[in-house]
Design a protein around this nucleic acid. Sequence first.
DNA 1: AAATAATGTAAGCTAAAACTTGCTTTGCCA
DNA 2: TGGCAAAGCAAGTTTTAGCTTACATTATTT
Lengths: 225, 225
Amino acid sequence: MPKPKVSPRKRPRQARSTATVDAILQAATYILVKHGWAHFTTNRVAERAGVNIASLYQYFPNKESIVVELQRRHVESARPDNADAMAALQAKGSLRGKLGALIEASIDEHRAAPALHRVFAEELPRSARRTDPAREALVQATLKQLVSPFARNVPDLDLAVFVLRVAGHAIVHEAANQRPDLLARPELAGEIVALMERYLQRPSPSATPHPRKRNMRARPLSSHS
Amino acid sequence: MPKPKVSPRKRPRQARSTATVDAILQAATYILVKHGWAHFTTNRVAERAGVNIASLYQYFPNKESIVVELQRRHVESARPDNADAMAALQAKGSLRGKLGALIEASIDEHRAAPALHRVFAEELPRSARRTDPAREALVQATLKQLVSPFARNVPDLDLAVFVLRVAGHAIVHEAANQRPDLLARPELAGEIVALMERYLQRPSPSATPHPRKRNMRARPLSSHS
DNA sequence: AAATAATGTAAGCTAAAACTTGCTTTGCCA
DNA sequence: TGGCAAAGCAAGTTTTAGCTTACATTATTT
């Protein structure tokens, strides 16, 4: 399989052409969000952008490259936020504070453009998706650095960090896409922090493993189907 | 937009034709798993199945209907497992036992056909995806029933159940798709249970909010970036 | 202001992929 | 064993969508 091109075949040099490119990307965003990848065609994008299809192909070598550029601009615009979040992270001394800053940043990012975010994460085929495994690994490592000083009675820190990372992201992502009402509520971040914090800081194993005495107050009201 | 048809235009009546349908579905599975939705074409499916394209269209009105049937059979085959899991759930008295049974069932389900599961969840376009919102709501309600007797100091049970449901599923799903090594490890279920259990059973609010005395042993080794 | 480069567009081409038509073969049943 | 319905297939048709060619227009440079 030949690696598909991704970089534009021509760089816009005049104001006119950068406006054209912007129009194309804006139209592409609209089509993707409104109709999904299945109906995302170059002809349609060009039509909605009000530019000729041939002009589109002057700046984008193929269909995929349009959404690649969209994703590039998307993460680009999120970078300053990430920098802020990182600074805030260093400032907080407590685990709770650090986790809170992290989650808030993630929620903000999802709030910014939830529909587009969903398309990138769920709708694109693998060929057009910018999966950056290096970035994933970096996040994993950073998170591990962050939480490791606070972990108590965690048998496998790598496993725990995986659990935390996936859970945290999934909750925010799912709320953004399926339950915008939840994303809007201020308690959400606190709940995720609680989930993570208590998972990381467990009582010493000797306290729990006594099997008797466990359910002195845990009997349900009625546990029928 | 006219609702696309989904039911076969002709029901197979002889053994020969049910074999044809099976061959089509098997080929469809192969193509989907191996090459993804982008390369999933009716001609290709028919070719691999060794049946004529016209025969395919005798039993499937269109391309989408093939993967819809695939999904139908998939959940069909998972149903007995679910029944078993439900029975096991009732048997366990403790929260830990119930959660453990639930997670184990989910892990088993993902272990059974991880590649196909991934395709259904991540690769299909919305038009071909069988999202059953009623089922989602049912899961949410069932889970709430299950955990509500055990929740301690949880401010909003609905929110908490959302958090649990999404986190649990995401961890298993992500492990199945990105980290098969993790899915194979027996500790995984225990970790997820720990995450859920401790999140649900929190100390009374008056115990934590003393800000001093918090970090008597939590100072990191070295917290440089 | 002429030359040249950048940008824009009308009108297609092409290949692929969804889907049909018309006919033959196969199996069931009296 | 002949009649009939189910099943199968060769060879299309048609539409769609990615992409190109050849030319026209607009800006920049000297």
